[in-house]
């Protein structure tokens, strides 16, 4: 088991013929992911190293039976690509595109909720998802993810930050702790998938025994997650929040990370998670050590 994606997930890549799409799409395939098709309007009938390319998602789905899509197209085209995938019957969409206007994200998200309630969007501006040994969609380097062990315990990871997602994977790999699934939800203002969505899945997943959560300043997603954890998550958790020292009013790299009007501070988020019973580390390594202690207790 794993959450959202596994060895049976068939994936198409929207933008496979572009530089980034080709690079990551082929890497995902080399990892063992079932990358069954690419989609680029006007390039149907061609192929990328043996992966057939179609003009539309509908054609690709009809030919391959794919249920997941990896969207790696420029910001201007991303919203249309997401909605095209949803309209063609794709149920899990991973969008790594960085720099989509917030107004577009808000409209796209709410269109999905209204017209395609069964579709899950991960991202935009996220590193993607990996169920180690089974499926890797996005830009995560597969080799830094420790395979889950049959007898456990295995850890699920959910993170708002790209590089800190890798850092979390690496902390576990160094300690020999298996990972069930690692989800990078992305740091944009309107993420398709929230911490809570992932926590709910991890709580229900028999292969996941403990959870690491990586948050950062800005917004209130971590506080909402803390409320959810208090009421619904019985599996042990550790966490880390980046940006304790970030000054107010300055955007730290991407649209989500900003402390404004005294809201969204790291300390507030850490306190909320601690109050929900999560062991909170002061840096990623400490969150890893805390998880190692949790895992040792489960063995």
């Amino acid at each position: 088991m794993a959450i959202f994606v596994d060895q049976n997930t068939k994936v198409i890549v929207q933008g496979l013929t572009g530089g980034q799409g080709k690079y990551h799409g082929l890497r995902n395939k080399a990892y063992g992911t079932q990358v069954v098709a690419g989609v680029t309007p006007g390039k149907g009938g061609t192929d990328v190293e043996g992966i057939p390319v179609y003009n539309s998602v509908a054609e690709a789905v009809a030919a391959t039976g794919a249920t997941a899509s990896f969207v790696t197209v420029p910001p201007k085209a991303a919203s249309a690509a997401i909605l095209e995938a949803a309209g063609a019957g794709i149920t899990f969409i991973v969008c790594i595109t960085e720099g989509i206007p917030a107004q577009d994200e808000a409209r796209t998200y709410n269109t999905l909720v209204r017209d395609f309630p069964k579709v899950r969007l991960l991202g935009p501006n996220c590193p993607g998802i990996i169920s180690p040994g089974k499926c890797n969609i996005g830009i995560t380097a597969g080799e830094i993810a420790e395979l889950p062990s049959a007898k456990g315990p295995n850890v699920g990871i959910v993170s708002r930050s790209g590089t800190l997602t890798y850092q979390a994977l690496y902390e576990l790999k160094q300690r020999g702790i298996g990972v069930s699934t690692c989800v990078g939800i992305g740091g944009d203002p309107v993420p398709g998938t929230s911490f809570i969505d992932c926590l709910r899945e991890f709580q229900a997943d028999p292969e996941t025994h403990a959870i690491i959560m990586i948050g950062e300043i800005g917004g209130s997603a971590e506080e909402e997650a803390a409320e959810f954890i208090k009421a619904n998550v019985t599996k042990p958790m550790s966490a880390y929040i980046a940006g304790v020292t970030a000054p107010a009013g300055k955007k730290m790299g991407h649209a989500g990370a900003i402390v404004s009007g005294g809201k969204g501070t790291a300390q507030g988020k850490m306190d909320a998670l601690s109050a929900a019973g999560v062991k909170v580390g002061n840096n990623p390594t400490e969150a890893g050590s805390l998880m190692a202690e949790i895992v040792a207790g489960l063995r």
């Binding site: 930050s161 790209g162 740091g187 980046a242 940006g243 790299g253 790291a266």
Partner: peptide
Amino acid sequence: AGLAMSTLD
């Protein structure tokens, strides 16, 4: 961005 923030911390 996350790692950079974390580095500051």
